[in-house]
Design a protein around this nucleic acid. Structure first.
Lengths: 197, 197
DNA sequence: CGGTTCCTTGAGGATGATCAACGAGGGTGG
DNA sequence: CCACCCTCGTTGATCATCCTCAAGGAACCG
């Protein structure tokens, strides 16, 4: 979702700065606002009892996040945290719903956005179930490449091993060992600890 | 999504009977239709190379399925198969999109529906990552109970062990062994092979 | 009955998680 | 410039657990 920032402000949205590591909302919180990133990145994730983390999704400059619970009477299923210093617009749920009513074009945009999210989550689920670590990591890598729309060239993957682990539901050591296997298989390159795919 | 059947037919939808086990579309197919179930049940699933199956979602009488790819230029991420003899309405993508344009109320309905799906898929992902079989099965059981809106009573779970395995990404044997453990823990009851929770 | 489908149990093996330790690089402050 | 402290990457050993394979039993149905 991308609503013009000025329009949002006209409707009462306020911008707030967040420091890296600050939480925007927690799993279980009652949703009351629409959030849109002016600058920075945000990720939504879950942690289990043993502290293992699973990254559900990542959001960048210009995008909104955490909208689905605004439409259904449910609390947030995940926690949102700021990954890099950010500026985020915040608008009350009520005003956001009014905007949607006023501008049908935004409704269409939202439908498309949600469709993409559902599609992407289906793919993720499929990959996680296909248990082998290599499949999962490949899924993550292909996803990233697709999103950066540079599917035809080899690119450096800007994620740490730990982040890849959080996206795939694996442990760091497993990611490392799998990546070195994939390197010998010539699927990926590792130059100077940087991952190329 | 639930569009009045007569309205759909006015717009050119046709009803077709499907026998149990018939496929409606396959993973990778190009989406061209909107489907709504008049009668019966349908499931969407993936299979991996070893034939292991993962059930993404299940749809019952009155509901639509397979809409997200209609909005984004992607092929179906999963296969849809008929679980019980069914009658299904089928409308071309173009007409469906026209209906949405004509009746904004349906757009809102669709947003809510998609929001629910995203929510549910987030929960599923969280549970699958939380690797223990018991957690996964509990997630499945709670989900089912919630959907059947009988959260306060013990109910019989109308799924075979294999089906539970397909929903949770586990193997049948693991499901069986975990369920017997949960039985001794008094979390579930097993009467006459029927699972009560 | 014979054929399904579903449930159950056991033994064994593969593999990812866990635990522990260390190395490399980058940044900071004295 | 050097010492220290981070974060990140890496490796090895061991363990727990789920999967695999194999076999058989129970319920149901034509």
């Amino acid at each position: 979702m991308q609503i013009n920032a000025d329009l949002l402000i006209t409707w009462g949205a306020v911008a707030r700065k967040f420091k890296k590591g600050e939480f925007i909302f927690h799993e279980g919180d009652h949703p009351r606002f629409y959030y849109q990133i002016l600058e920075g990145t945000v990720k939504m994730f879950n942690t289990n009892l043993e502290g293992k983390e699973f990254t559900q999704m990542e959001f960048k400059s210009g995008h909104s996040f955490g909208e689905p619970p605004l439409f259904i009477d449910e609390s947030y299923p995940s926690t949102a945290v700021v990954c890099t210093d950010s500026i985020i617009l915040k608008l009350s749920k009520e005003k956001f719903l009014e905007i949607l009513d006023q501008y049908p074009a935004f409704q269409k945009q939202l439908i498309t956005l949600f469709a993409k999210r559902i599609y992407s989550k289906s793919i993720t689920a499929r990959e996680i179930i296909n248990n082998t670590p290599e499949t999962r990591i490949m899924g993550f890598l292909n996803d990233f490449k697709k999103k950066s729309s540079r599917e035809n060239e080899k690119i450096e993957i800007p994620y740490t091993r730990q982040e890849i682990a959080n996206y795939t539901g694996l442990r760091v050591e497993t990611v490392i060992r799998t990546l070195t296997k994939m390197k010998t298989k010539k699927i990926v390159q590792i130059v100077d600890r940087k991952l190329i795919y």
